[in-house]
């Protein structure tokens, strides 16, 4: 018996812009019949070959490895050559809107200028820094356990889907961003690398570094290669403490302050935590807010601070389970 191919009719709206002729970008609508075998790249190819030869988009390997073809469909970052259209129909229905990864950086249609992405990628020295002897006497051994630590970070194909989904990038152009952080981790966790400290110093700068991450998990959600950049960002945070790179500032004291608060109360002493993080001078900026909170019953008096039952047990856990120092 012949297996039938299931098809569906969809409307695709594609972002179009040609700087030579268009004053403003616009969406061009196409009606297509798609099968369960089609990926987004098939849709783009058919539009280009059958409807509009002037449509521009990047594509190369068609195997999910070159990272060229990332676009957004209904605001979800996808690799066009990997994402099945039927899966998108399940998520969004039969009207799909295809956008470039970033509308402000469009060169033409779906092609963007990724210079900002590459500049930040370069900033973390995305290569092994090591003095390798030309004729080594023995192998440079890396154990399977050590490989496992960096494996998923090494799967990154620089498609930019995470970078252009990161909300911090949108409001803080200095932020290095998830892809480059994952790459930095890939080398800070490689025992052959000699630039660990230098890399950690780069990624822990205030304003551009890991402390400016808002922990929204957009990068983990969007990554088509399961690199899980936020996990690598967390590990970079931990490494800055482990390697003594972390400087005392509002962000590092905030992280450490949780331990102190938990040790003292079990639950947080929220006001105490802000004080510990900011110091007396930094507290001044919070006064208007604190007054407002106090007026509305949002700051308990010191004698009413919540304390966990079995606090002694928590104190003991903090004592025996602590592994980090600052």
């Amino acid at each position: 018996m012949e297996k039938s191919i299931q098809t569906k009719n969809i409307t695709v709206k594609v972002f179009r812009f040609n700087g030579d002729t268009d004053v403003l970008p616009y969406y061009k609508e196409y009606k297509l019949e798609v099968s369960q075998e089609d990926v987004v790249l098939d849709v783009l190819n058919r539009i280009k070959w059958e409807h509009s030869g002037s449509l521009s988009y990047r594509r190369s390997c068609r195997h999910g490895i070159c990272g060229s073809c990332a676009v957004k469909v209904n605001n979800k970052g996808v690799l066009a050559c990997k994402e099945r259209v039927f899966d998108l129909i399940d998520l969004f229905g039969d009207e799909l809107v295809i956008d470039p990864l970033n509308k402000q950086r469009v060169i033409k249609d779906l092609v963007i200028d990724k210079k900002d992405f590459w500049d930040k990628y370069d900033a973390v020295q995305p290569y092994l820094v090591a003095d390798v002897e030309e004729e080594p006497e023995k192998e440079n051994l890396v154990t399977p356990d050590e490989v496992e630590k960096i494996a998923d970070a090494d799967y990154c194909i620089q498609c930019g889907a995470c970078y252009y989904s990161c909300p911090v990038i949108e409001v803080n152009p200095e932020f290095i961003g998830p892809a480059a952080f994952a790459k930095a981790y890939r080398f800070t966790s490689d025992n052959r690398d000699d630039a660990k400290i230098e890399r950690l110093e780069t990624v822990s700068q205030m304003g551009s570094g890991v402390w400016d991450c808002v922990k929204c998990f957009e990068c983990a959600q969007v990554c088509p290669k399961d690199v899980n950049p936020i996990d690598k960002i967390t590990r970079l945070h931990q490494q800055t403490f482990q390697e003594g790179v972390a400087e005392s500032n509002v962000a590092t004291r905030h992280a450490v302050g949780f331990k102190h608060s938990i040790e003292q109360h079990g639950f947080l002493d929220e006001g105490g935590l802000v004080f510990y993080s900011e110091g007396p001078l930094g507290m001044v900026q919070h006064i208007p807010e604190a007054v407002n909170m106090f007026k509305n019953g949002k700051i308990p008096m010191p004698w009413n601070l919540p304390k966990s039952k079995n606090l002694e047990e928590i104190k003991k856990i903090v004592k025996i389970s602590s592994t980090a120092k600052f």
């Binding site: 945070h237 931990q238 992280a255 389970s321």
Partner: peptide, 19 residues
């Protein structure tokens, strides 16, 4: 659960994963 402690709020996690 009155015996509970703070979850670390993703910040303790930046400092001490095991704890």
């Amino acid at each position: 659960i009155e015996e509970a402690s703070c979850c670390g709020a993703s910040h303790l996690q930046d400092f001490d994963d095991h704890l």
